[in-house]
Amino acid sequence: MFEARLPQAAVLKKLVEALKELVTEGNFDVSPSGISLQAMDSSHVCLVTLQLNDDGFEHFRCDRNMSMGIHFGNLSKILKCAGNEDTITLKAEDNADQLTLMFESANQDRISDFDLKLMSIESEHLGIPDQDYSAEVKMPSAEYQRIVRDLTSMGDTVLVSATKEGIKFSTSGDIGTANITLRHNTTPEKEDEQTHIDLKEPVALTFALRYLNNFAKATPLTPQVKLSLTKDLPVVVEYKVGELGQVRFFLAPKIDD
């Protein structure tokens, strides 16, 4: 059987809210080392990966590897019934066709359980190599959210260029052009408010703003986001989920015809 317990439902609620518009369904692959997910958006230009490590859970048991096909909209409906501070337990028998979600309030005076029907989802598993990126930028996640939202009011695509001057986001559209540059800045006392630019070589890539905006739905998960860029490769936008793991969004760059 599979059983995983998290002390705060809020984490899972935020994760599912971050994914559900980009990917409607996907397989939660559970194994003794944790829960993972790979899912593409409907146009197949972006990939979401999720890794939740077994030791990040309060309790984790998985006797047999399983692939649980989840409709994220439906999972979201169920998670809306959990309080942010509720303890949440996910449970499934081996080869089950449903996933049980149990919510317990902090003082344990309210216990509810919901069964989510599982789906059979055929999905292609992609091999993502570990690699060195030309530029890795860590910035406040709220700053990333603001930049991509502001630029969306001007254009559809953004040119992201990392140089020793900083990371610049540029767009243009019918009403004009916009450029926003963030510099390496370790002045703020709080590490969460700092911007770190680790540059091996300058790089510039163009992306669809619609997707970058969608990734920002993960902002409530964590105060920092990491962007990894290399010429002609998908950008990686990564949000760490405390000690539990991380969610990564990969987006193919736009290239000249």
């Binding site: 091999g127 695509t157 193919a252 015809d257």
Partner: peptide, 13 residues
């Protein structure tokens, strides 16, 4: 501008 599918960058594992 065009956009390749994400699977063009990562092979099947």
């Amino acid at each position: 501008m065009k956009q390749k599918p994400i699977s063009a960058f990562f092979g099947a594992s």
